[in-house]
């Protein structure tokens, strides 16, 4: 038997172990090659599919690269003004109890312009899930410095590296959020290896379960890459992230009540 016929024998429906979930639409993603957004979208779609909550989930997309998230995940969506996703999610979850409401925000959206929104939403303990994608840069606008940019990191607006004496220090939003009594589940994850993706999926599942049980706000930070903004290849970006980002933004669950 030749190798090709053997492979063709393996490739059949009953042997399928991993494929695209139907909650993820067939549209081609506009993200750059290797962008972490794609993996996170997939994980959220898989969790929604496995929990069978596709018709009960409402997402709020931010301003940033992931503004077009509504083109990729087949659920109901809203699109908020810059940084205001938690406010929309608050209204949605209060007016429509029983729905699974989540926001999907980047670091420019959540940590910068939407900082007050998220802190007050967390303090109120709204019954929502927040996905916070931290890649330490403003990706969509061309790689400028974000509040989460690491010290010494070169960006379009810090060509000699971020100087903390001038621009302040990188913001650890997740640690701040974990201090607030309104939050129930606060965790920091990544998505660069198969193991990390599995962990992220478990965290997302737990977050949506918290919503179902009316437990309050679940906050998931995902440390991600921006290969275009960092001017590195996707594989090198992951290495840079492991070396530099994980030291300042350590992975793990900060709060689980």
């Amino acid at each position: 038997m030749t190798a090709t016929t053997e492979i063709n024998k393996i490739i059949s429906k009953e042997n399928l172990v991993y494929g695209k979930t139907s909650v993820l639409l067939d549209n081609e993603m506009h993200y750059c090659p290797g962008c972490t957004h794609g993996v996170i979208h997939k994980v959220i779609a898989e969790v929604i599919d496995e929990m069978g909550i596709q018709d009960k989930t409402i997402g709020v997309s931010p301003v940033g690269c992931s503004v077009l998230a509504y083109n990729y995940i087949d659920i109901d969506w809203q699109q908020a003004a810059h940084g205001r996703a938690p406010a929309l999610a608050t209204a949605t979850s209060r007016l429509m109890p029983g729905k699974y409401v989540f926001t999907y925000q980047g670091d420019g959206d959540l940590a910068s312009i939407g900082c007050a929104e998220i802190i007050h939403a967390c303090n109120r303990g709204e019954n929502i899930v927040v996905f916070f994608v931290n890649n330490a840069i403003y990706g969509m606008t061309g790689g400028q410095m974000a509040p989460t940019t690491l010290e010494g990191q070169v960006t379009a607006t810090t060509p000699y590296g971020r100087d903390c004496k001038v621009t302040g220090f990188p913001m650890k939003i997740t640690e701040m959020i974990a201090m607030l009594p309104g939050t129930r589940f606060v965790t920091r994850q990544s998505a660069e290896t198969p193991g990390a993706v599995r962990k992220l999926k478990k965290a997302a599942q737990k977050a949506f379960e918290n919503t179902r049980e009316n437990k309050g706000l679940s906050f998931i930070e995902i440390v991600g890459t921006c290969s275009s903004g960092w001017k590195l290849s996707p594989v090198k970006s992951n290495e840079w992230m492991k070396e530099n980002m994980f030291a300042y933004y350590p992975l793990g669950t900060l709060k689980d009540e």
């Binding site: 393996i10 399928l16 172990v17 991993y18 695209k20 993820l24 993603m29 957004h37 993706v197």
Partner: peptide, 18 residues
């Protein structure tokens, strides 16, 4: 093992196993 499928950002990989 599905490792490739899990990390693929564009979900273009389908995995089969026997």
């Amino acid at each position: 093992c599905s490792s490739c499928g899990l990390v693929c950002p564009d979900t273009v990989i389908t995995v089969y196993r026997v």
